[in-house]
Amino acid sequence: MDRIPILKLRDLLLVSIQVDMHDRLAMQLQDELTAKISETGARGVLIDISSLDIVDSFIGRMIANIAAMARVLDAETVVVGMQPAVAITLVELGLNLPGVRTALNVDKGMALLESATPDVEDLPDADAGRTE
């Protein structure tokens, strides 16, 4: 079965969705990402959707859920790389992704997360002593 890899980089979790997700895969990503935030104490989550050529209401809901769950676990979520045609379609569909921060690309998303989670920038060695 497909699995979407979740990478940990310092205090951030990085996800790049490269496949056309079916609903169970989207649910699985939501569960795994939430577990991973709790397990690693990550302060930020960056989700790259530049390879997604559609976001329908189910995938949109999954993204909004991840952002909401991450917030409850003290982590910020940024969604980056949405294709213009996907953005146009999402708005017409009626989905406005409440509570989800977006950035045009990975660079800008990382900058947004670093400013939103000062610990990431100020204390790069904060988890140096942590064992995993």
Binding site: I54, D56, F58, P84, A85, I88, T89, L93
Partner: peptide
């Protein structure tokens, strides 16, 4: 854009 709208509606 039209492809994306049709695919999303079908989904």
């Amino acid at each position: 854009v039209d492809q994306t709208k049709m695919v999303t509606a079908a989904s």
